[in-house]
Computed example of a mutant assay.
Amino acid sequence: MRQQPFYPLTVEYSTSCGHIIEPQVTVRDLGVYVSNERSWTPHIKKTVQGARQMAAWALSAFRDRSTIVMPTLYKSLVRPKLEYCSPVWNPHKISDIQKIENVQRSFTKKIIGCTELTYWDLSLQRRRERYSFVHVWKILQDLAPNDLQFDFSTHQRLGIKASIPTINRKAQLAVRTDYDKTFRVHAAQLFNMLPCEIRSIKTLDAFKSGLGVFLEQYPDTPPVTGVTGINNNSLLSWKQERMHLS
């Protein structure tokens, strides 16, 4: 479609010094790439690229493939790149989840004695959701800033619960879908899954311990290339699966 002569005026800005700020498809802010299409795929693509480069360097610099050296290299050099600020960009598209999980799968296959192990013993997807649980709990306990304005309510029977923000249902379907996948909504839904006795825990170590026991109740089968799972492996999906079976 042909643009009107005044179209650039609606998307370009001038600073007080006369510099022109032009529109960009993606913008890097504190290490996170934000897309003008409300998609985290560009950020995930760059994240996976950086992690693969680091993995390649580690594998070329160290010949030892033992279960002591390799996990240490992975946890200290590769995994941090895949998890930096992950609660913000936690993906929900199967293709994006696969890209991240495939980095870890490729690395763990090179560890001596681990080539034939079931891959889902180590899920980055489940770790990201665990971060969400912990961060919401920290907000509740005033241990983290409540920048997203989480609200909590206490019920006599249900205990402490995070409120789920609503959105105008007349909004476009794509907008509603993206909104439902944001941290503010998704993390609140995850937190409310916890039994009330875990949500009410007051110390971090005790909360993490209770959370670990809770997570063990759910399968962890992240989407990987060539494998078709029952669902997208989110804890919310497993909850729906159980409700359907019951």
Results as ranks from 00 to 15, higher is better:
Ile230Asn: 14
Asn102Cys: 06
Ser153Ala: 11
Tyr84Phe: 01
Ser95Val: 14
Glu216Met: 10
Asn192Cys: 07
Asn233Arg: 01
Asp180His: 12
Gln125Tyr: 01
Lys181His: 13
Lys99Cys: 01
Trp57Asp: 02
Tyr131Asp: 04
His43Gly: 07
Glu216Lys: 13
Gln189Leu: 15
Leu140Met: 10
Asp220Gln: 14
Lys109Arg: 14
Leu140Ile: 09
Ser106Lys: 05
Phe207Trp: 12
Val25Tyr: 05
Asp178Tyr: 12
Thr115His: 03
Gln125Ile: 01
Asp142Met: 01
Val175Leu: 10
Gln125Ala: 03
Asn168Phe: 02
Gly229Met: 11
Leu148Tyr: 02
Tyr13Ser: 08
His186Gly: 13
Ser123Glu: 06
Val25Thr: 02
Gln172Asn: 11
Gly212Trp: 06
His43Asp: 09
Pro87Val: 04
Gln149Arg: 02
Tyr13Arg: 13
Lys239Cys: 08
Leu122Asn: 06
Arg184His: 14
Arg2Trp: 13
Leu82Ser: 05
Lys202Tyr: 05
Glu83Val: 02
Phe133Tyr: 07
Thr115Lys: 01
Pro23Ser: 07
Tyr119Gly: 03
Thr15Ala: 06
Pro222Val: 09
Trp89Ser: 02
Asp178Trp: 12
Pro8Asp: 08
Arg128Asp: 09
Ser237Phe: 09
Phe207Gln: 11
Ala206Glu: 15
Leu77Trp: 09
Thr166Ala: 07
Ala174Gln: 12
Ala187Leu: 11
Ser123Thr: 08
Pro8Tyr: 08
Thr67Tyr: 02
Phe183Gln: 06
Ile20His: 03
Val78His: 00
Glu216Tyr: 03
Val185Lys: 03
Ile201Glu: 14
Ala144Arg: 04
Gln240Pro: 00
Met54His: 01
Val27Ser: 09
Pro42Tyr: 06
Ser163Asn: 12
Lys46Leu: 14
Val69Asn: 14
Arg169Cys: 09
Leu122Tyr: 02
Ser234Trp: 10
Ile97Phe: 02
Arg242Ser: 12
Phe152Trp: 13
Glu116Leu: 04
Gln49Pro: 00
Arg242Asn: 07
Cys196Glu: 13
Val227Asp: 12
Trp40Ala: 06
His186Met: 14
Ser246Phe: 12
Ile139Arg: 00
Lys45Ser: 12
His186Phe: 15
Val48Thr: 01
